[in-house]
Design a protein around this nucleic acid. Sequence first.
DNA 1: GTCTATATGAAGATAGAC
DNA 2: GTCTATCTTCATATAGAC
Lengths: 210, 210
Amino acid sequence: MTPSPDTPAPANTSANAPRPATNPTADRLVEATRDLLWERGYTGTSPKAIQQRAGAGQGSMYHHFAGKPELALAAITRTAGELRGLAEELLSGPGTAVERVTGYLRRERDVLRGCPIGRLTQDPDVMADPVLRAPVEETLGWLRGRLAEVLAEGRANGELPPSVDPSGTAATVVAVLQGGYVLARAAGDTAPFDQAITGLLTLLAPPQQP
Amino acid sequence: MTPSPDTPAPANTSANAPRPATNPTADRLVEATRDLLWERGYTGTSPKAIQQRAGAGQGSMYHHFAGKPELALAAITRTAGELRGLAEELLSGPGTAVERVTGYLRRERDVLRGCPIGRLTQDPDVMADPVLRAPVEETLGWLRGRLAEVLAEGRANGELPPSVDPSGTAATVVAVLQGGYVLARAAGDTAPFDQAITGLLTLLAPPQQP
DNA sequence: GTCTATATGAAGATAGAC
DNA sequence: GTCTATCTTCATATAGAC
C-alpha cells in the first residue's frame, strides 16, 4: 500500500483481525465504542454517538475503521481480553479453591452497569454476526471452564463435597453473576446482586456446625 | 360508563393504564410488539416492523396507540402478567417447597429466546422511562418475594437447613435462571442453562448419603 | 377504523477537498 | 489523517381523505 519508508504502519490489513488501535484517535474511537456498547448495546449505538464521545470527526472514524461492525469487533475484543485477564488473575492467585472463587465473585464490580460481555448476548445483531459473536461465546465459555478447574481442585482436596459437579457448578456460578446483574438493574439497586452472591456462597460452603 | 346501548367500549381512557386490547387489530399489534420486544428489544423494534408483523397499517396503529411507548407498555404489561401467573401457579401448587421450586426451575422454557422480562433490563430506553420500567421491576421483585416465601416454608419444615436465608437464596434462584439464559445464548446451546439449574439444585438439596 | 401522503431527523455511509 | 458535502434508507410521526 505505502511503499515509502516513512510509514511504519502496521501490516495488519487482514480482513479478520481488528487493527490494533495504535493510533491515538483510533484508540479513543475504540474506547468510546466500548463505553457505548456497554451502556446502550450495539443497536443503540450510532456512529455519530461514537464520534462525538471520541471527539473525532466522521471522516476520521471511517479512515481508521471500515464501519460500525469493525469498530465493535475491536471494542468487544479489547473488553473480552480485559475481563479474561482479570478473572485469570483472581482465579489463579493464592488461596484455597473456595477462597479464590469467593474472591472472584466478590471482586469490585460496576454492578448497575452490568457485564459488558454478557449484555451483548441480548443484542440480536451481535449474535447474528459470527465474527462479533465469537468473542462473546469464547469468553463466557472460557470462564466456565476455568471455574470448573478451580472447583474440581476444591472437590479433590475435600473443600467441596463429592456431590459437587465442577462443570455444572461452574455454570451455576457464572449464571449467578450474570443473573445478579439483571436483578440489580431491574431493582435499580445493587442489593439483589449481593444477595444472590451471598446466597450462592452459603450453599457452596455452608457454615460449619461443630 | 357507557350510557348508549350500542357502545360496549371500555371507559379506560386514563393516561396511566394501557388500553386493554379489546379490538382484534389492537390485539394483534400488542402481540406483534411482544414478539419483537422479546427478539429485538425496545430500541431494535420499529413501528414499521410492528405493523408488518401485525398485518396492520400505519394509520391503524396510530389510531389504537399513541406511539411506540404506549404499545410497549401494553406489551410489557401483558407479558409480565403471564409470567407472574405461570410462576404463581407452579409455586402455589402441590408438593413440598423444594419440589415446587424445582418444578418452577425445570418448567418448559424457550431457553434460547431468553426471558422476555429480564431482557428489558438491558434496554436503556426502557430503564430510563419509569412507566416502562415499573412492570419489569415489579415482576422480578415479586418473583423473588414469592420464592422467598416458599423457601422459608421449606426451612421451617426441615426440608432446608437453617443456614439457608430465604431472601438471599431466592435472589440466587432467580439469578441462576436469568444468568442461565445468558450462558445459553452465548453458547448457542441450551446445555449451560440446564447445567446451571442442575448445579443449583444439587447445592440446594444435596443427594443424601446414608 | 384504515389508508395514503407528507415531513423531520437520524442512521450509516461514500466522495473528494484540504 | 481529518473535514465537509452529499446520499439513501429508516424511524417515528402527523394530516387528512375515505
